[in-house]
């Protein structure tokens, strides 16, 4: 297990809560994962499996039931709070609601482990705070109150606070949870840039698999009873994501890198046309319960014509020919048709 390149490592870790009378409830055990320098690690897994508990254990907000956590090959237990605060920053799921707190002051709180007992910022501290603000590009917001920020802006400010803390590792619990789609991408991309440019190890939990696959260097995948780690691509090719929802209605499409609802296969329709047209027509047809294929002859055959942006869907059914100018109309017809035949 000795690997000097690893910044953070766990060894046979069990997490959970210590109960009374030696009875403790284990949430997850046998966790052996690692994260390297300049790596963005995404922690992925179903709700309630223990992602937050794992992250809280990594930042020492909760002690492991058994097993070890190593930070730079030193057991986490041997770090004092102050020393740990200079190595490891944390952003929790809690949204901070404080009126009258300006962004610059929030980021300045990150200097806490370095300032004296009065908390006064020196020149070096102020430089670090300003650097942190620049790194997440919120210079224009630094005089604003945090309750005036949008969710995305506030998340950036919280990230800037951990950057000002000047740690080698940053752990974030669902940093994209409340964000809209562009902000989700931007925040994760920002984390990826920070990891690569400043050599930090950044670990974050998320439910946005798509984004994690694009940006993360490594994924820790928590499945029922085991945790698997590897680059997202290795996990996809190794079939790990398919395992994740084996007993659910979801199916992982390895070619597309996304989940789909598993549907009962219905009547088969033949479909030909341009790539984009076929993809989205297929999407709609599968939604209303058809199986779609490009091969063979079937009772219903659909061809999509694209004449300089003007698309026509031509349906041939037992010699009858019909034309539709939108997928919506096509679907209405097919739904009615299916109803009439029972």
């Amino acid at each position: 297990m000795e690997d000097s390149n690893q910044v953070l490592q766990t060894e046979d870790l069990s997490i959970g809560f210590k109960g009374k009378k030696k009875e403790s409830s284990i949430i997850f055990d046998k966790i052996s994962v690692s994260a390297g320098k300049a790596e963005l690690v995404a922690l992925f897994g179903p709700n309630g499996i223990g992602k937050s508990t794992l992250l809280r254990s990594l930042v020492k907000l909760q002690s492991p039931l058994s097993g070890k956590i190593f930070l730079f090959n030193v057991n986490l237990r041997n770090y004092s709070r102050t020393r740990l605060a200079r190595k490891l920053g944390y952003v929790s799921t809690e949204t901070v609601h404080i009126n009258n707190l300006r962004v610059h002051d929030l980021v300045s709180l990150g200097r806490y482990p370095y300032t004296g007992w009065m908390g006064r910022l020196g020149k070096d501290d102020i430089d670090k705070v300003n650097d942190a603000i620049n790194m997440v590009s919120i210079e224009h917001l630094q005089g604003k109150f945090i309750h005036q920020l949008s969710d995305g802006e506030r998340q950036r400010a919280m990230i800037a606070r951990t950057l000002a803390q000047d740690t080698s590792i940053i752990v974030l619990d669902e940093p994209t949870a409340f964000l809209d789609l562009p902000n989700k991408y931007e925040v994760v991309h920002l984390l990826q840039k920070l990891a690569r440019k400043s050599g930090k190890t950044i670990i974050f939990s998320t439910h946005d698999l798509h984004i994690a696959i694009q940006e993360a260097a490594k994924i820790w995948l928590m499945l029922e009873g085991q945790i698997i780690q590897g680059s997202p691509e290795d996990l996809i090719l190794g079939g790990s994501f398919s395992k994740m929802f084996e007993n659910t209605n979801l199916k992982f499409n390895e070619a597309m890198g996304e989940f789909r609802i598993r549907r009962k296969p219905g009547m088969t329709i033949g479909l030909t046309g341009g790539q984009a047209e076929c993809k989205w027509t297929r999407n709609a047809l599968e939604r209303i319960g058809y199986r779609v294929t490009a091969q063979g002859i079937h009772e219903i055959m659909i061809t999509v014509e694209n004449d300089r942006g003007k698309r026509v869907w031509e349906v041939i059914r037992r010699g009858d020919k019909m034309q539709f100018n939108s997928i919506y109309n096509l679907c209405s017809f097919l739904e009615g048709f299916r109803d009439s035949t029972g």
Binding site: S92, E94, V96, Y112, G119
Partner: peptide, 15 residues
């Protein structure tokens, strides 16, 4: 000042 963010954040700042 550290406690403004709540005790978890305060702990993570080394308080």
């Amino acid at each position: 000042n550290a406690m403004l963010l709540g005790e978890n954040y305060a702990r993570s700042l080394g308080m």
